[in-house]
Lab assay of single mutants.
Amino acid sequence: YKPCFVCQDKSSGYHYGVSACEGCKGFFRRSIQKNMIYTCHRDKNCVINKVTRNRCQYCRLQKCFEVGMSKESVRND
C-alpha cells in the first residue's frame, strides 16, 4: 500500500476512498459519526504528519477531506 495520504505513516489499506493508516481511519470515522466540530488555534494550515497529526484535529480533518476521504462511505453502525 501507499503511505497514509493524510499523515504519511504506514498505511493499513484503503479506507474511505484513500490509502490511510489505522489512526487516521479511526479519527475520520469518529469525527464523522459524532459530527465533531473542531477549531484550529493557529492559522488553519498546520502541518499534518506522523509526529504532528494529534496536535490539531481541525487541520487533520481538513486534510482528510483534501486527500479525498469520503464521509458518505462512513457507516453509522
Rank of each mutant, 00 (worst) to 15 (best):
E72A: 08
C64V: 03
R53M: 15
H15I: 04
V74W: 07
N45P: 10
C64S: 04
R53T: 11
R29P: 01
Q8I: 00
C24H: 00
D9P: 00
K50M: 14
I48G: 03
V47A: 13
G13W: 02
K2Q: 12
Y58E: 06
V67A: 10
Y14N: 10
V47K: 11
Y14C: 08
R29D: 09
G23E: 15
Y38T: 07
S19A: 11
V51H: 12
K50W: 15
V74H: 07
R30W: 02
L61Y: 07
C4Q: 00
K34D: 15
R60L: 15
I37W: 08
C46G: 07
I32E: 05
C7E: 00
C64N: 00
Y16N: 09
K2V: 08
R60Q: 11
H15A: 12
N76A: 13
R75D: 09
Y16D: 14
G23M: 06
C4A: 02
V6M: 02
I32N: 09
C56H: 03
R30E: 14
C59M: 02
Q8S: 13
E22Y: 04
C24M: 01
E72Q: 07
G68E: 02
E22M: 06
F28P: 00
R60P: 02
T39Q: 13
H15K: 05
K44P: 03
I37F: 06
S73M: 13
C21S: 00
D9G: 03
H41M: 13
C46Y: 00
C59W: 01
N76Q: 13
R60F: 13
S31P: 03
S11A: 06
H41E: 14
F65V: 10
G26D: 15
D77Q: 13
S73A: 14
M36F: 04
Q33L: 13
C64M: 04
L61A: 03
Y16A: 09
H15E: 07
V47D: 15
V74L: 10
R30A: 00
N35M: 07
C4V: 01
K50G: 14
L61G: 03
S70L: 13
L61I: 06
F5V: 07
V18G: 06
F28Q: 01
Y58R: 05
E22S: 06
H41F: 11
D77F: 07
Q8R: 06
S19I: 13
V74K: 06
K63T: 08
N76R: 10
F5T: 09
Q8A: 12
Y1L: 08
R75P: 12
N54C: 05
C59D: 00
R29M: 15
N49T: 11
K2C: 07
V74E: 10
C4M: 02
R42C: 14
T52C: 04
Q57E: 15
V51T: 11
N54W: 08
C21Y: 01
V67R: 05
Q62M: 10
K71H: 06
R30K: 14
G23S: 14
F65Y: 11
S31Y: 03
D43Q: 10
F65I: 14
M69T: 03
K71L: 10
R75Y: 14
V6E: 00
C4D: 02
C59V: 00
R75E: 14
K10M: 13
S70E: 12
R30H: 07
D9Q: 03
K10H: 12
C56M: 02
C7K: 01
Y1Q: 07
V18K: 02
C40F: 01
F5E: 04
D43Y: 08
K71Y: 06
G23R: 04
R42Y: 12
Y16M: 07
F5D: 05
V51Q: 13
Q33S: 10
P3A: 13
E22A: 06
F28E: 00
S73G: 11
D43C: 04
I32C: 07
V67C: 07
C40I: 02
V47L: 12
N76S: 14
R30T: 02
N45W: 05
E22Q: 05
V6C: 00
R55L: 15
C46P: 00
I32P: 00
Y1G: 08
T39D: 13
E72L: 06
C40D: 01
D43E: 13
D9I: 02
Y58N: 03
H41V: 10
V47C: 11
E22N: 05
F65S: 05
Y14E: 10
V67K: 11
I48R: 00
Y1R: 06
K34V: 07
K25A: 15
E72C: 09
S12M: 08
Q8W: 08
S70H: 12
F28D: 03
R60H: 15
N49Q: 05
D43W: 07
C7L: 01
C24S: 01
P3G: 11
F27K: 01
N49W: 05
K71C: 07
R42N: 14
G13M: 09
S12Q: 09
C4E: 03
S12Y: 04
V47Y: 14
E66N: 10
Y58D: 07
C56D: 03
S19K: 06
R60E: 03
C40N: 00
P3Q: 13
C24F: 03
Y16F: 12
K71V: 07
Y58W: 14
T39I: 11
C64W: 01
C46H: 04
H41C: 07
G13I: 05
A20F: 09
R53P: 14
C56R: 00
K63Q: 05
C40L: 03
F28V: 02
I37Y: 05
N35P: 05
D43N: 09
K2I: 07
K2F: 05
S70I: 15
Q62A: 12
D43V: 08
V6T: 01
G68A: 01
V6W: 01
E66L: 10
H41P: 09
E72N: 12
R60T: 11
R53I: 14
G23L: 12
K44H: 05
C24W: 00
N49I: 06
V67H: 04
C7V: 01
K63V: 05
F28N: 01
Q62P: 01
R53Y: 14
C56A: 00
Q62Y: 04
V67P: 03
C4F: 02
M36E: 14
N35H: 04
Y14K: 11
G23N: 09
H15L: 08
I48E: 05
S31H: 06
S12L: 06
C56S: 02
V6G: 02
C4T: 00
K71W: 07
D9L: 02
F28C: 00
S19D: 05
K34E: 15
F28Y: 04
V6P: 01
R55F: 05
A20I: 12
C59N: 01
Y58M: 06
R53Q: 15
M36D: 07
S31V: 05
